[in-house]
């Protein structure tokens, strides 16, 4: 069986600064990967690269640059980050409704502990509430795999539990979950990738 994610030869730089290099990731359906490493090592950049939002850099000098690496997914990927992509001026339910229409699914607030916040404008939400709203948006998308950037930021204990069970559900459905986080996540069978082991 072919792996659900094959990423080969990923090199990354931000501006002139090389971040990581020579990175290969192969994950089977249902696997979970925890990205770790100090601030600024490129965890977010790697997630963006895996999401297709950032191009892998070319390795080597300008006149002898190798081909850039590539990322191959079997299935659809979605990406959760700090930025909620929700309209700050709109009530939460209306802001989510835009993505719901786009993704063709009804908005659900209760599973994310947001039932009381439907009428509250997004800009009044706290960090943790925004993160929950992010998961509400994430779950609207019919994605097979999840890329999560610091999903536990600002969440209370109950919220962390919610995220862990959402990750477990996703994996049971055969999805890959890749998490960049400084906090430990209680997920069974979690593989860890330390970007310090992959210097440019």
């Amino acid at each position: 069986m072919q792996a659900a994610l094959v990423a080969r030869d990923l090199y990354c730089r931000r501006g002139e600064r090389p971040l990581f290099g020579g990175l290969n990731i192969t994950l089977e359906a249902g696997e979970a990967l925890h990205l770790v490493g100090p601030n600024g090592i490129g965890k977010t950049s790697l997630l963006q690269m895996l999401a297709g939002l950032r191009k892998p850099a070319r390795h080597g000098s300008f006149n002898a640059a190798g081909p850039p690496g590539d990322v191959l997914w079997q299935g659809i990927v979605s990406y959760l980050e700090d930025r909620t992509a929700l309209d700050a001026e709109l009530p939460l339910a209306d802001a989510l409704a835009f993505w719901a229409r786009l993704d063709g699914r009804p908005v659900r607030l209760e599973p994310y502990g947001l039932a009381d916040l439907a009428d509250v404008p997004v800009r009044y939400l706290s960090t943790g509430q925004r993160r929950r709203a992010g998961f509400a948006r994430l779950s609207l998308q019919r994605a097979d795999h999840w890329l999560l950037d610091e999903p536990l930021n600002g969440l209370d204990t109950q919220g962390c539990g919610m995220v862990e069970s959402l990750i477990a559900e996703k994996r049971e459905a055969g999805g890959i979950v890749i998490v960049a986080s400084h906090q430990p996540i209680a997920v069974p069978g979690l593989r860890t990738l330390d970007l310090r082991d992959h210097p440019w």
């Binding site: 999401a51 297709g52 939002l53 990927v77 979605s78 990406y79 980050e81 930025r83 909620t84 992509a85 929700l86 309209d87 700050a88 993505w99 786009l102 993704d103 948006r137 998308q141």
Partner: peptide
């Protein structure tokens, strides 16, 4: 600008 800041174009691109 507000949509770039909020990551709306990123989410559209992912879709």
């Amino acid at each position: 600008a507000p949509d770039i800041e909020q990551g709306v174009f990123d989410q559209l691109a992912i879709r």
